[in-house]
Computed example of a mutant assay.
Amino acid sequence: MMRISLSMCKQTVVLPDRASGMLNLVDFFSPRRQKEKVVILLGATGTGKSRLSIDLATRFPAEIINSDKIQAHEGLDIATNKITEEERCGIPHHLLGVINPNTDFTATNFVDMATHAMDSILFRSQLPIIAGGSNSYIEALVDDKDYRFRSKYECCFLWVDVAMPVLHHYVSERVDKMVENGMVDEVRKYFDSNANYTRGIRKAIGVPEFDRYFRAEPFLDKQSRAKLLQEAIQEIKRNTCKLASRQLEKIHRLRNKKNWKIHRLDATGVFLRRGKEADEAWEEFVAGPSTEMVAEFLYNVSSEALVTKAALRECIAQCLVA
């Protein structure tokens, strides 16, 4: 299971000022800027959006806003794959595990709460990083009818992409790991024979799939229970892969039909490696390039600027190991 390495919980990067030939956080938080800046992370389930959000939030002064409509609900931390307290590295998270599990969390709810969270984060001179898999909710926020968001905010869209066959294999392994970590017992606590699986947290993949198993469980022998359990687990894997495919289609639509300027980061190589090699590949293909893109976005670095990309790269590297 691809988890956030606690070694990534580093100090916030504070770059030297322009007078010394480098960059300054004052450039980002200057009242002269016409628009506030927001970083938005996209990607199918399991691609590493949460990990990247932590990487960026430990390298820049930032807070994270969850945009996964299921993870916004309280409960089912294993089944919904919520980032743990330890993995958050002390970074403040908003809209994560705060909604009543029996209450629907609509796109309108998300827009209202995310807008409030962004205002609060910016008031503290922090960068809002929005990360999650509910692309329709992000679309509702960014492309609102009155164009209010676009008129107020400038966005840097980063897309963590993984080749679908590789991602499908990974999410299948991730489901097995979730089962090992106690997902079945966790979901069993939410089982209700009269439950409505179209409302609240019970819409989450991993909940309705167990319904038939929980109903039949008391009446089956050990072998039959094991068979029915495996059928439920396989259904969860299929539905998770279908979700990933739908999420990818939505990202392509935002990029190709709505012309969102989305920067793609190919993380396939990360998922083909293990251990230290995977961490090194993550830094090379995802975290490193993302850090450079966000730095350029925040500090208006261009090829014509006095500070070259090579100098920026060296400065960031020095700050990270300091």
Score class of each variant (00 low, 15 high):
4 I>L: 08
5 S>C: 05
6 L>W: 09
6 L>M: 05
8 M>C: 04
9 C>L: 05
11 Q>I: 07
14 V>D: 09
15 L>P: 04
16 P>C: 00
21 G>Y: 03
23 L>M: 04
24 N>W: 11
31 P>C: 02
31 P>V: 07
31 P>N: 08
34 Q>W: 07
34 Q>N: 04
37 K>F: 00
38 V>F: 03
39 V>N: 09
48 G>K: 07
48 G>Q: 12
51 R>L: 05
55 D>I: 07
55 D>T: 06
56 L>I: 11
57 A>N: 10
59 R>P: 01
59 R>I: 11
62 A>V: 09
69 K>P: 00
73 H>V: 01
78 I>P: 01
79 A>N: 08
80 T>G: 01
81 N>P: 00
83 I>W: 00
83 I>A: 00
83 I>M: 02
84 T>F: 02
84 T>G: 08
85 E>D: 10
86 E>T: 12
87 E>Q: 02
89 C>G: 05
90 G>M: 03
92 P>V: 08
93 H>A: 02
95 L>E: 12
97 G>L: 07
98 V>P: 00
100 N>Y: 08
100 N>D: 15
101 P>M: 02
101 P>Q: 06
101 P>W: 01
102 N>C: 01
103 T>I: 08
104 D>H: 09
105 F>A: 00
116 H>S: 10
117 A>P: 05
121 I>D: 00
121 I>Y: 13
125 S>C: 07
131 A>N: 05
134 S>E: 10
134 S>K: 13
137 Y>P: 04
142 V>W: 14
146 D>M: 05
148 R>W: 10
150 R>D: 10
151 S>Q: 11
152 K>N: 02
158 L>Q: 10
162 V>R: 09
168 H>D: 05
169 H>A: 07
170 Y>V: 05
173 E>K: 06
174 R>Y: 06
176 D>R: 12
183 M>Y: 03
189 K>Q: 02
193 S>T: 14
195 A>M: 00
197 Y>H: 05
198 T>N: 03
201 I>M: 01
208 P>R: 09
209 E>C: 04
211 D>Y: 09
212 R>L: 06
214 F>M: 02
219 F>L: 13
225 R>E: 03
226 A>I: 09
231 E>A: 08
234 Q>W: 15
236 I>H: 08
236 I>Y: 06
237 K>E: 04
238 R>H: 13
239 N>D: 15
240 T>F: 04
242 K>Q: 15
243 L>V: 14
244 A>G: 10
244 A>K: 13
245 S>I: 15
247 Q>P: 01
247 Q>Y: 14
248 L>P: 01
248 L>Y: 15
250 K>D: 08
253 R>T: 09
253 R>L: 00
256 N>P: 05
259 N>I: 04
261 K>E: 07
264 R>V: 10
266 D>W: 00
266 D>F: 03
267 A>T: 12
270 V>L: 03
270 V>G: 09
277 E>W: 06
281 A>P: 15
282 W>T: 13
283 E>N: 12
284 E>I: 12
284 E>G: 15
286 V>P: 12
289 P>Q: 11
303 S>T: 12
306 L>C: 14
307 V>F: 12
309 K>Q: 13
312 L>Y: 14
312 L>C: 15
314 E>P: 06
315 C>I: 15
